[in-house]
Amino acid sequence: MSAPARDLVASEWRKVATTRIVWVLTAVAVVYSSVQAGTLVLIAAPGLMEGLAGTVLTDDLLAKPEYITAVLGQAGTASIFVLLLGVIAMTSEFRHMTITSTFLATPMRGRVLVAKMALFAGIGAGVAVVAFAGVLLTTTLALVPFDHAPITLEAAASVLAGAVVGLALMAILGVSVGSLITNQVAAIVTALVWVMLVEALVTLAFPAVGQWLPGGALNAAMAVALRADMSGGMSAADVLPPWGGILVLLAYAGVFAAIASRTTLRRDIT
């Protein structure tokens, strides 16, 4: 019924392109992930951290190819902003009541949800590409003064591919969360508390459980186990294979979207 799916995605893109939030959060994501990568280079650099409490570096980390890969993997830290973008995309329709004209043009409400998810998969992938570019540039520059393992094309390509897939999935998840919790403030707070508090603590205490949570699944999807190992205490045994991570994230988004289309999205728009 009504317009073809291509037109719906085009409409969703115009919604995004004609407000500022996507550009702002993308810029923040690039800066944030680049700073993370730069910081990882500097704290591993010989000499720089000497004298700081607890920083006795026995290994020359920068000489390890897997450490360099982990530094590039910081592109994945853009995921929180991508998640928020997805959440905001759906909840701002309810906040500004544009959902009325949206549902008038597309009375089959599930189609709106699917179109948003499709577009935001693309936006997540796009943010991954620019965040990776920022991280690659920062890492290359930060490594200049030091001896280090080379940045291989293979490592760069696998991190980029992982980030593209992971952030696309994260954006879809964000849209599904926003459709389930349509109050914008509540949805954003829930997403942040979950990522920064609940999931971080659970992963620290029970790594075996953490791998099944969205953040753990994201790490698996991006196949950057080392990053998780350094920041969250996960051992390699507690990380799903990449395809497993992708499936877990898709399952979360699918379940949230299915619940939303039977509950919140069926509600009267008054």
Binding site: S2, A3, L8, K15, T18, T98, A105
Partner: peptide, 27 residues
């Protein structure tokens, strides 16, 4: 064509862009 209330607009969007969003969704 329905005009239900005057509040259903994103304040940061221009009128023209609001209409282009809806036009696209309607094909």
């Amino acid at each position: 064509g329905a005009a239900l209330e005057a509040s259903g607009f994103h304040p940061g969007r221009t009128a023209r862009n609001h209409l282009r969003v809806v036009a696209a969704a309607a094909g």
